[in-house]
Simulated assay, not measured.
Amino acid sequence: MLKEEYLDLVLVPLGLVIMAAYHAWLVSAVFRRPKLTVIALNAESRRQWVFSMMTDPLKNGTLAVQTIRNNIMASTLLATTAITLCSIIGVFVSNSSGAKSSASSIVYGNKSQVLTSIKNFTILVCFLVAFLCNVQSIRYYAHVSFLVTVPVSRGKKEHCEYVARNLNRGSYFWSVGLRAFYISFPLFLWTFGPIPMFLCCCLMSSVLYFLDTTTSFTRLLHSQSFREDSESMGGEIESAVHSL
């Protein structure tokens, strides 16, 4: 039987390894098996959306800018929440630096002041990462809002590809910022002991697996929509060439 002081040395690294192993598998699946992950399918959907909007910027410009504006508002909300939580944690740490821990008897683990500072610091780092990622997401979305309404020369797809890449980069930063919020939850439970933190890591990895992976129906639906979009885009290009 392990002593209470050693639970942090065993359960906390084990929980972090579980989370790290899951995200390593997720990154590998995004590049090697993109149809298995929601991230890759959403990236392809955004790419098709950019091509659809830029085929007629005068007609679709308002819709495109409004959609990007909604994404900017979502990123702004998360960035504001993250920096607010950072400020609250900073005030809490400064006020309770000399306070004594009054943990319940059912909470096990090391209750030293140094470990408490490490817990607060890791939570603060998560929210700072979330803030910076959402700020970068706003930066890319604001840039795309100008590029998506630029008329594209006939037969030139490089500009559309560039806009799609920037839009996906903004979405990737938003996803990383949101993932930092997810990771901060087991770190917050670490303040109550290593056992709740370890259980939360196991549970969150399972929940994230179902959120990040796709079903056969979803893959079929996306493949059909991509096929229809490519055929419609090809028809529009052919009609434009015949009109010349």
Rank of each mutant, 00 (worst) to 15 (best):
L2G: 05
K3M: 03
Y6E: 14
D8S: 05
V12C: 02
V12I: 14
P13N: 09
V17Q: 04
I18G: 05
I18M: 08
I18D: 04
A21Y: 11
A21R: 07
V30Y: 13
K35W: 15
T37S: 05
I39V: 12
I39Y: 09
A43Y: 10
A43D: 09
A43K: 14
E44V: 10
S45K: 14
S45L: 08
S45E: 14
R46I: 00
R47F: 06
R47H: 08
V50E: 00
S52H: 06
M53N: 01
M54K: 02
P57E: 01
L58H: 02
A64C: 00
A64L: 00
N71R: 15
T76K: 13
L77E: 05
A79N: 07
T80M: 13
T81Y: 07
I89L: 15
G90R: 00
G90E: 00
N95C: 00
S96C: 06
A99C: 04
S104K: 12
S104Q: 11
I106R: 10
L115S: 01
T116R: 15
N120E: 12
I123D: 05
C126E: 03
F131A: 07
I138G: 00
S145A: 11
V150F: 14
K156D: 15
E158H: 01
C160A: 09
E161Q: 10
E161H: 08
Y162I: 02
N166G: 03
S171N: 03
Y172D: 15
F173C: 13
V176T: 09
G177F: 05
A180G: 04
F181N: 03
Y182C: 10
S184Y: 02
L187M: 15
W190F: 00
T191R: 10
M204R: 03
Y209S: 08
Y209I: 05
T213R: 09
T215N: 08
F217I: 10
H222W: 13
S223E: 14
Q224H: 08
S230L: 14
E231F: 06
G234A: 15
H242L: 15
H242G: 07
H242S: 13
L244D: 12
